[in-house]
């Protein structure tokens, strides 16, 4: 084979490879870009509303919902109320008395089969605040859901 033919073949191979690599590189980069975009955390929305002013906390039970059917023989009661309140939680099978160090409180409470009337009462440390109460009707009925 002549020197020129060999040079032409060599140049053709190099040209072909460079061209193929450039195109493949650009394709893989665009795919990587898509993946990276999906992995990035989503933009959080910021509220422009002013922060809530600190006010006296009313007794609020966030969990469980009233009149709920539960399959377990215990429930987690979660709520919030004024700090350092004396909280009394009573049902026909359990009495619980404690003081909440933080506004939020969370306690596990046992349930009896059938209807559980749970009375939650908070006595605020501040004597100017009124005693508050909530009543929950929770039904422990296993295998009924």
């Amino acid at each position: 084979m002549k020197k020129e033919t060999f040079l032409a073949i060599f140049l053709g191979v190099v040209f072909g490879f460079i061209f193929a690599l450039i195109i493949l590189g650009s394709i893989s980069q665009s795919q990587l870009g898509k993946k990276t975009k999906s992995l990035l955390p989503q933009k959080k929305e910021f509220s422009i509303l002013p922060a809530k002013p600190t006010s006296l906390k009313l007794l609020n039970i966030t969990n469980p919902k009233n009149f709920l059917i539960i399959e377990n023989d215990k429930v987690t009661i979660e709520g919030e109320v004024e700090k350092n309140s004396l909280i009394v939680i009573q049902s026909p099978i359990k009495d619980l008395v404690f003081q909440n160090k933080e506004e939020k409180f969370k306690v596990d409470f046992p349930l009896a089969l059938g209807e559980n009337v749970i009375k939650i009462v908070s006595y605020p440390q501040n004597p100017n605040l009124k005693t508050q109460e909530k009543t929950l009707f929770i039904y422990y009925l296993p295998n009924e859901i």
């Binding site: 032409a8 073949i9 140049l11 040209f15 072909g16 193929a20 195109i23 493949l24 394709i27």
Partner: peptide, 27 residues
């Protein structure tokens, strides 16, 4: 360019373009 050089060079270009197409299709 010499005809003898041009022909293999052109054939190679066509071959690599074909190869390139194959690669693109595969990817």
């Amino acid at each position: 360019m010499n005809k003898k050089i041009f022909l293999p060079f052109f054939a190679l270009i066509v071959f690599f373009l074909f190869l390139f197409n194959l690669l693109i299709f595969a990817s």
